[in-house]
Nucleic acid binder design. Sequence first.
DNA 1: GCGTCAGCCATACGGTGTATGGCTATGGAA
DNA 2: TTCCATAGCCATACACCGTATGGCTGACGC
Lengths: 187, 187
Amino acid sequence: MAVSARRGAPLTLEEITTTALRLMDEGGVEGFSMRKLAGELNVNPMSLYHHVESKEALIALICATAARRMDLPPDDGSPWQQQLRALALAYHRHVVAHPALWSYLHSNPELIADRKLEIWQTLYRILRQAGVPEAELRRTSDVLHAFVTGFVVAETQGHLPAEPEEIERDFDTAIHLIIHGLASFTG
Amino acid sequence: MAVSARRGAPLTLEEITTTALRLMDEGGVEGFSMRKLAGELNVNPMSLYHHVESKEALIALICATAARRMDLPPDDGSPWQQQLRALALAYHRHVVAHPALWSYLHSNPELIADRKLEIWQTLYRILRQAGVPEAELRRTSDVLHAFVTGFVVAETQGHLPAEPEEIERDFDTAIHLIIHGLASFTG
DNA sequence: GCGTCAGCCATACGGTGTATGGCTATGGAA
DNA sequence: TTCCATAGCCATACACCGTATGGCTGACGC
């Protein structure tokens, strides 16, 4: 099947996405280009297009994969406040691992809109436990996700102070606000 | 002073920023280019660089101007909840007028970080009235701004439902969460 | 009259995404 | 064994981008 002249093995989608993610981690999504990716893979730029429809589609694929890979806290029977905090921490940890990617995702939220994603199901479960009415689940989860997204981007973009313990306190403040805001539903 | 060959009058910074803002409103910040701007102004692309240092600087200038133009609610003595709502509405109104610009600003929060901006002073005032301790003002305002920013981007990016009354209810939910979250400070 | 300089622009460089079409070697069919 | 469809790859080209460089022009102060 006409393997690359400059490489031994044929390209794989896996290889493409992995390298692309690394490049984006290193140089941001803005600094990422198909030509650089091709160079890194020692391949002609056009070869990529046999595995991927477009640059945009490639990024979308990587975002979707990243979103699916997040490991979320199970329902351990603890109070919803604690579970919400655990979920936020998991999300936060995941974002910090790939700031560039999530900052991009932040401006293109449709890439993570699928409500069947485990992350949404987990959030729904916690919100139910918090007393949010069924009819308000979609709305409340949207708003919360927007909040969290805003926070995380502010952090990864360096809008918040750089010291880790300061960030942690900011994080605590954010969670505090959200939990006390949600608690008003049970009242 | 060697006015443009193709135009009668010399370029002005005002003219450049106004046209640039219009182009960004129409085609998004990604779709905006110096060459298109020059074309719109009937001028050689390089002429722009006599009034502006770079594309990035131009966008930053426009963002800063936009942020300063927002007219904010004065302290009318009403409860802080009401004032916070008014501030959020003013912010919201302003963002909806130039979604593309604010979506960009959202990914580059440093462009609006200046704490002397009236918007921050107003927010500080309201947070004080809400009982937020002085030492927590910076942190709380950061977090709130991140929240609001996230919400507004979600809305302008079409992540929230399109129907206006739905958006309004989402907005109410957001404000509700924030107000009840803040209220925990006075408790 | 002359120098200075603001304003403008032509050209060029190195980058981008990707359309088009052609090459090659492999798998299956005959 | 032969043949061919096709998967995989790549060379070329196009239209765009931001902007460095350096030169032109004409208004102004002296």
